[in-house]
Measured scan of single mutants.
Amino acid sequence: QVATSTVRILGMTCQSCVKSIEDRISNLKGIISMKVSLEQGSATVKYVPSVVCLQQVCHQIGDMGFEASIAE
């Protein structure tokens, strides 16, 4: 089973930030795809909930120095 959710990301300033986040999160087990939008300050994450949760994704992004939260 696959889920798609949006994560809000604060602190991104350039495409390099976007690429860094996409590269790191895409390597997590259970992540199918991730598309980060600098303009919208968010990311669309396609993932397998039984393998990885959005809290883990937000935590990983937080470790990179950005502020991440699950969009309502």
Rank of each mutant, 00 (worst) to 15 (best):
T44E: 14
V36L: 03
T13P: 01
V2Y: 14
Q55D: 10
L28R: 02
M64H: 02
F66E: 02
S33Q: 09
L10T: 13
I31E: 01
S5D: 12
T4C: 15
R24L: 07
S50R: 05
R24T: 09
S20I: 10
T4K: 06
S20G: 05
L10H: 11
V51E: 15
C14L: 03
I32C: 05
P49K: 06
L54G: 01
V2L: 06
S50G: 13
Q60H: 10
M64F: 04
S26P: 02
G41I: 05
V45T: 01
S33R: 06
V48I: 13
M34E: 00
V36G: 01
M64G: 02
I31T: 01
K19L: 09
K19R: 13
I61K: 05
T13W: 15
S26H: 08
Q60Y: 14
I61R: 01
E72L: 10
V45L: 11
C58L: 15
D23I: 10
E22A: 06
V57I: 14
K19E: 13
V18R: 05
V51I: 13
L38V: 04
T6P: 04
L38S: 02
A68W: 07
Q55V: 11
Y47W: 08
V52T: 05
A71D: 14
I70R: 04
L28Y: 04
E72F: 09
S33D: 09
E72M: 09
I70F: 10
V7G: 00
K19G: 05
I61E: 04
M12V: 05
V52Q: 02
K19T: 12
L38H: 01
F66D: 02
S42H: 08
H59L: 14
T44F: 11
V2D: 06
V57Q: 02
T4I: 13
E67K: 12
V52A: 04
I9C: 07
G11R: 00
I61N: 02
S20R: 15
Q15F: 10
Q40A: 11
C53Q: 10
I32E: 02
Q56S: 09
S16W: 06
E39G: 07
A68P: 05
L38W: 06
D63Q: 15
S16T: 14
S42N: 11
K29W: 11
P49S: 07
S37Y: 12
E39V: 09
K35N: 08
A43T: 02
M64T: 02
A68N: 03
E72V: 10
T13H: 14
S69L: 09
Q60L: 15
A3G: 04
I31S: 02
C58H: 06
Q40V: 07
S33F: 08
K19M: 08
A43V: 06
T44R: 12
G41F: 08
R8A: 08
I25N: 01
M64C: 03
V45P: 01
V48N: 15
A68T: 10
E67W: 09
D63E: 14
S50P: 03
V52D: 02
K46P: 04
C58N: 09
S37A: 06
M64K: 02
E22L: 07
I21K: 00
I9R: 00
M34W: 03
K29Q: 11
M34L: 09
I9A: 00
I70P: 09
M64V: 03
T13E: 09
I61Q: 04
E67D: 10
G11L: 06
V18G: 06
Q56F: 13
L54S: 01
D63G: 08
L10R: 14
M12Q: 03
Q15P: 09
T6V: 14
K35G: 04
Q56K: 12
G62L: 13
C58M: 13
C14M: 03
I32N: 00
A3R: 09
C14T: 06
S16Y: 06
I9N: 02
T4D: 04
V45N: 01
S50C: 05
Q1V: 08
A43Y: 02
Y47E: 00
S37C: 09
S16M: 13
L54I: 14
F66C: 04
H59N: 14
E67L: 10
H59I: 14
K46C: 15
S37F: 09
L10I: 11
K46S: 15
L10N: 11
V2T: 15
S33V: 05
I9L: 02
V45D: 03
M34N: 00
K29E: 13
A43D: 03
P49R: 06
I9H: 01
D23C: 07
K35H: 12
